[in-house]
C-alpha cells in the first residue's frame, strides 16, 4: 500500500477530529499532483438571527485525474461545498486551493453541471454550447468545430438546431455536459446531474460520463445522493454527514472499470456505504 503524505495528513486530521476512518481504507494513490486542496473549510449562514453552520472542518485533497463522488443526505452541505469549489459562492472560511491560489470566483478551467440543465430556452443546442466561449479568445471557426465535435461526443448530432423544449430531459442534460466540456476544463464539477432523470436514462448517462471522463482525463467531483452512482463512478467516495455538514469518512473504490453493478465487491462497497444512511 502506497500513500502520499497528503493522504496521511488527511488521515491524521480525520482521526484527531474523532471521525470514523477505517485504517485499511486509505486510498491507493500514485504520485499524482494535487488538483484541488480543501483545507479546514467552514461555511455558515445567518438564519433569523442565529448562525447556521452548513459546513465544518472540510479537508480533502483531490488528485489530478481523480473521480471523486460525494454522497450525503439532503441538507448535508454537499451542494454548498461544490458551489464553493466552483467559485459561485466565495463567502467561506478556510481555503480551497486550486492551481496554487485560493478560489475567489469562477474560472473557465472549472466546468460545472447543475441538477437542472439550465440551458437558455431561447438558444438552440448549438448556440447554448457556443455561449460557453463568450469570454474566451478562441477564433470563431474553431469554436464551431469544437461545438460540433462536442455535440458528436455526447451523441446529439442532428439536434444542433433544436430548442431545449424540443428535446428530452436526458438530452438536455447531455447538452449541459457538452457545454461544460467544450472549454476543456481541468476540473469538472457535477451537482446531482442525473437526479431529475428517469432511471434508465440515468444509467445510460452514468456510462457516458465515465467514457467522457476517461476520454478527457478530467479531474471530476460528482455530488450525488445515489450511493450506487457514487460507487459506479468514483475512485473515492466521500461520505458527508449533516448538522453541521462534515466529512464522515472516505471510501476508496478499487474496482476495475467499467464497473459491474452485480459484482459482489461492488455490492459489498455499496452495502457498506448504505450503513451510513440507514
Amino acid at each position: 500500500m502506497s500513500s502520499s503524505n497528503t493522504v496521511l495528513d488527511f488521515r491524521k486530521s480525520a482521526i484527531t477530529r474523532g471521525n470514523v476512518f477505517e485504517g485499511n481504507s486509505v486510498p491507493e494513490l500514485h504520485a499524482k499532483p494535487v488538483a484541488l486542496k480543501i483545507e479546514s473549510v467552514a461555511k455558515s449562514y445567518a438564519l433569523s438571527g442565529s448562525e447556521l453552520k452548513v459546513l465544518e472542518a472540510i479537508n480533502l485533497d483531490v488528485q489530478s485525474g481523480e473521480f471523486i463522488s460525494i454522497v450525503g443526505a439532503s441538507g448535508c452541505g454537499k451542494s454548498t461545498l461544490l458551489r464553493l469549489i466552483a467559485g459561485l459562492d466565495i463567502g467561506y472560511e478556510g481555503a480551497i486551493v486550486y492551481q496554487g491560489k485560493r478560489i475567489e470566483g469562477t474560472d473557465l478551467s472549472r466546468g460545472i453541471v447543475f441538477q437542472e440543465h439550465r440551458l437558455f430556452p431561447w438558444l438552440t443546442v448549438e448556440a447554448n454550447i457556443l455561449l460557453a466561449f463568450a469570454s474566451t479568445n478562441v477564433p470563431k471557426a474553431e469554436r464551431k468545430e469544437r461545438v460540433k465535435a462536442q455535440i458528436e461526443l455526447v451523441g446529439l448530432t442532428g439536434f444542433e438546431h433544436a430548442y431545449p423544449h424540443q428535446i428530452s430531459g436526458g438530452m438536455s442534460q447531455r447538452v449541459a455536459i457538452a457545454r461544460a466540456l467544450v472549454l476543456r476544463p481541468q476540473l469538472l464539477l457535477l451537482d446531482e446531474p442525473f437526479a431529475a432523470l428517469d432511471a434508465l436514462t440515468r444509467l445510460k448517462l452514468q456510462q457516458e460520463l465515465e467514457r467522457l471522463w476517461e476520454h478527457e482525463g478530467l479531474t471530476t467531483i460528482l455530488v450525488t445522493h445515489d450511493v450506487e452512482e457514487a460507487v459506479f463512478l468514483g475512485d473515492r467516495v466521500v461520505v458527508m454527514q449533516s448538522h453541521p455538514g462534515r466529512i464522515k469518512r472516505i471510501v476508496p473504490v478499487r474496482l476495475a472499470r467499467p464497473r459491474i453493478r452485480s459484482n459482489p465487491d461492488f455490492q459489498c462497497i455499496k452495502e457498506d456505504l448504505l450503513t451510513d444512511f440507514v
Binding site: L88, T106, L108, G111, A134, S135
Partner: peptide
C-alpha cells in the same frame, strides 16, 4: 436566478 449563475460560471461579458 439560476440563469445568472450560468452567466457567472462562464464569465459572460456584461454585453453578452
Amino acid at each position: 436566478k439560476p440563469y445568472f449563475e450560468v452567466a457567472q460560471a462562464y464569465q459572460l461579458p456584461t454585453l453578452t
